[in-house]
């Protein structure tokens, strides 16, 4: 589904990504992990066409994405920081995105699920961070897209919403979708990820299953496995 070759990106003097090669073939949940500033968000934004790589190629379903836009119909994106126009109301924002995408959307059950009904007529600028994140989730999941890109979806969520989110991800996975997710919550990764891509200083350090990483590092849970990798790196 996604294939990158020799992907490199530099922001000014900082080499964020260096020669990234990876392929995502199957459906399932792929967790992109790595310490802060390792280039997780940059990879996701390159797949979305928001960041333009210095060199290398990205293919989505056998066609290059560079300069393209139609392929984004097949992607739902949840940005890391839920930033919306402050003066819009939640309902207006949802309707606007629906209007712009012009695709059938299924937002009602998501609004109910996250208890957003009472916020629909509130301005986005007045919402709390967690509520805004819930709006973010609704906007991402309301379209039926084969690929979901979730950048830190758990940020600011309360435990109940976190459970709802996990169920939502499981449900989408069962439908045969591919879900790319970044997070710092290792228990979440252990719970839902089929595969992990571990980034370190702009390079792919490891790609495989959680079990494989644990075996490689000789640890018996993911948190310690990753901590070990990071400590060895220092």
């Amino acid at each position: 589904m996604i294939n990158t070759e020799n992907l490199s990106k530099r922001f000014g003097q900082v080499q964020v990504l260096e020669d990234i090669n990876f392929t995502v073939e199957n459906s399932g949940v792929i967790a992109v992990l790595g310490p802060n500033g390792s280039g997780k968000t940059t990879i996701l934004k390159i797949i979305l066409g928001m960041v333009i790589p210095q060199s290398g190629s990205v293919d989505f379903g056998n066609a290059s994405i560079l300069g393209q836009w139609k392929y984004r119909r097949q992607i739902g994106y949840l940005p890391q920081i839920a930033r919306f126009p402050d003066n819009l109301k939640v309902r207006e924002l949802i309707n606007m995105i629906k209007d712009i995408r012009g695709e059938p959307a299924n937002e009602d059950h998501l609004i109910n699920l996250f208890g957003l009904n009472k916020f629909l007529q509130k301005r986005l600028g007045n919402l709390s961070g967690g509520t805004r994140q819930k709006v973010n989730i609704v906007l991402t999941f309301m379209f039926d897209t084969p690929l979901l890109i979730l950048d830190e979806p758990t940020a600011g969520l309360d435990p109940v919403s976190l459970i709802h989110l996990k169920e939502l991800i499981e449900k989408e996975k069962k439908k045969g979708k591919t879900i790319l997710i970044t997070t710092h919550i290792m228990s979440l990764v252990e719970e839902i990820a089929d595969e992990i891509i571990f980034l370190l200083e702009g390079k792919i350090y490891f790609q495989g299953t959680v079990k494989q990483l644990e075996k490689m590092t000789g640890q018996n849970d993911l948190e310690h496995a990753i901590a070990k990798v990071l400590r060895e790196d220092d």
Partner: peptide, 16 residues
Amino acid sequence: SSREFTELLLAQPIKR
């Protein structure tokens, strides 16, 4: 001031 709006749109299937 519309940077948020722009970023939101950039992830949608619309030409830059």
